[in-house]
Amino acid sequence: MIVGALLLGGLYLFPIWNITLEAPQYPEPIGMDIFINKFQGMNPNDIKNINIMNHYVGMKDIPEQIPEFEIFPLVTAGMIILGVLTGFIGKKNLYLVWFGLMVTFGTIAMYDFYLWEYDYGHDLKETAAIKFTDSDGEPMAYQPPLIGNKTILNFRALSWPRTGAYLMFLGMALSVLAYFQNKKEASNSSQQAQKAKEDDEEQYSHNVA
């Protein structure tokens, strides 16, 4: 459980999310890593170059600072402290509570990310040089996908979690595992013996393979 909580510390070191843009004239794709407290280009000038391209369709510049960059590090710190405390207390139900909180915060964060993306892709300057409409005649939006790949004009936008998020997922999984582990320790030893036997068989079949 404690390890699980500490894995959240990875959020301070590694990017959580990444949006990559691929296009024929960018044989080396450009993109942006989203950290807990900043946006950073995959290459030194990528954000500048994304802004240059996006200004033609009236999109705003990617901001250097947003309120989330203040809030998220605090929330994460809180969750790490909470998780470690929970681990020391050792009550299995508290593990589930912690997991539940993580899911809640994660969902809020994803929703917040979605809102920002929506605004970024829809709130276009009136004076945009290039105005495309979609098949319904509505002004085209340039919102990147929440998760997954999407074609936007000449670009293919790829939006996927990165190391920070994966470490977080692992941490959350560990908290659930800790919950079950704790539960199992309470159950009887014959079940454990049975499990051990299964494991041996598994090991044997591995060797055969």
Binding site: E28, P44, N45, K48, N49, I52
Partner: peptide
């Protein structure tokens, strides 16, 4: 005196 502000290849 003209400066190219681009930083793209």
């Amino acid at each position: 005196h003209v400066t190219n502000l681009e930083q793209d290849y």
